[in-house]
Design a protein around this nucleic acid. Sequence first.
DNA 1: AATAGCCCCAACCGCCTACAA
DNA 2: GTTGTAGGCGGTTGGGGCTAT
Length: 316
Amino acid sequence: MSSNTKSLSSTSCSEDESELRRGPWTLEEDTLLIQYIARHGEGRWNLLAKRSGLRRTGKSCRLRWLNYLKPDVKRGNLSPEEQLLILDLHSKWGNRWSKIAQYLPGRTDNEIKNYWRTRVQKQARHLKVDTNSTEFQNIIRCFWMPRLLQKIGGESSFSSPMLIQNPMALQPLDNVSQHLTAATASPPQIPGQGALNMSGTIYNLDSIQKQNAESVFCTSSCILPSEPIDMPKMSQIPECPPSPFHAILNNDNAKGGFCVDDNSYDIEAFNLQGSVSAQGFAGNSAGDCYVAESNWLDSDFSCGMWSMDELWQSRS
DNA sequence: AATAGCCCCAACCGCCTACAA
DNA sequence: GTTGTAGGCGGTTGGGGCTAT
């Protein structure tokens, strides 16, 4: 949405000339701000606001520049890689939007915050869980992030700029995100095989792709193990609870859905029946969960459906 | 075609911190 | 050490656009 096209609702003929303007920025204001910064540079926002002739607060000028006018601000939907990074970094730092934004070149804290509120929190609302809850964290780790990884892996043949060959496996985690952002800045010249390593997690894309007919194992501390997964062995781990989502794809009469939009790669909706919440995911020991989701990953996943009754039965 | 409801995002607000006087 | 100011951050809101009915 460009506010350039918007009219200033607060503007009127009788408006006091000395009054500060508020609301959407006009094209003229944008031009003034850009020209001033081109001549004098960023910073000293209050002074800028006075001298530029803009009847705006310094704060407003700063915000407009940083979130919209700055040349390197990226527009458009967040890529799966960016979404994955946000989910991962948020699990580490919480609502430290500006810190998270540092790892996504061209993305602003405001944009990331909006993404979290409109996409991620929406899912939590549908599930009737708190976004900070263990349950929801598990859902993100076990379903959303693997799905994004799968999507990235699926595109690996290959244009995904964040997908890099893995020269930095086992690097300290804080370097990893940096590496990822660096990869974004300079498009890779590599084929799409390898791994993503974030937060100490090696996202083994080869494994993901091979696992389409298998399943994905995830733990509280990582999404996928760094070692190639021996899925038959994994599936025998006794403490792995049965996947509540196993029922997802085998029930044509399902009334609930866990949907991922193929274009945005977002989980589109949890349409849960009654008072069902995601509490079932909290019971996984140490946050571990086992996801048998062969069909989920295999399908085009316009919308996987399952019965919530089955879901609940499967976890008890 | 009209309209009600929802979604998304730009912009604002209030608080906090850093720093200079 | 205190005070004032600027900048930065996270939370919240308002309104345009989209979709469903």
